[in-house]
């Protein structure tokens, strides 16, 4: 029963990722990639990582994709001019992505995994266990990431400031 949920979520993720790439309208791309993110969150639930699933939905579907949608609508890109990609470029992209896929599939197919932990700990992905690891073992990276956010915020504000002296290129 639970393996059917896995297959359903996997096919949803792969097909909506493909639809993201192939759809002409960027707004449709954003909506399809939100479907992908929700199915990945479903995978996190299946793997018993509830905290990550919640954070994934909040951060990706709630913040990042809203930012994308906001920029697309602000720049009015939803009636996009046609991309002038030549056909040989498209063919080359298909071929090179296929070659990468081939390399990865053969590498993964030959990989021999070490034995796992056996019966997994069910409380591992819960907020309490994750919070203890985060605040005990990874306290310094956690604090450094706040500095990263601060610098990203300063950079974003500085970059999107209007500069009236610059002539249009």
């Amino acid at each position: 029963m639970i393996s059917y949920i896995f297959w359903f979520l996997s096919f949803t993720a792969v097909f909506s990722a493909l639809a993201t790439i192939l759809s002409k309208n960027p707004v449709h791309s954003v909506l399809y990639i939100i479907v992908t993110f929700f199915s990945i969150a479903g995978h996190y639930f299946l793997l018993n990582a509830q905290f990550l699933a919640a954070v994934h939905i909040i951060v990706y579907a709630g913040a990042i994709m809203v930012l994308f949608l906001y920029v697309i609508m602000m720049l009015n890109l939803n009636r996009l001019e046609k991309e002038k990609t030549q056909n040989w470029m498209k063919l080359l992209s298909v071929v090179s992505a296929g070659l990468l896929m081939l390399v990865m599939v053969s590498a993964v197919g030959r990989a021999s995994l070490m034995a796992g932990a056996g019966q997994p700990d069910e409380t591992m992905g819960l907020t309490q266990a994750l919070g203890q690891v985060l605040y005990r073992d990874y306290l310094l990276p956690f604090e450094l990431s706040s500095i990263l956010f601060l610098s990203a915020m300063v950079g974003a504000v500085y970059l999107s400031k209007k500069e009236p002296t610059t002539p249009p290129l």
């Binding site: 990550l52 990042i64 995994l113 056996g118 591992m124 690891v133 990431s145 956010f149």
Partner: peptide, 24 residues
């Protein structure tokens, strides 16, 4: 989940942090 280690989930958390900053 396979190795029963919580550390990887903390790494995922940090990757999300970096992704959010990158998008901004």
């Amino acid at each position: 989940r396979y190795y029963g280690q919580t550390d990887a989930q903390v790494f995922v958390f940090f990757i999300m942090v970096v992704a959010a900053a990158e998008v901004a």
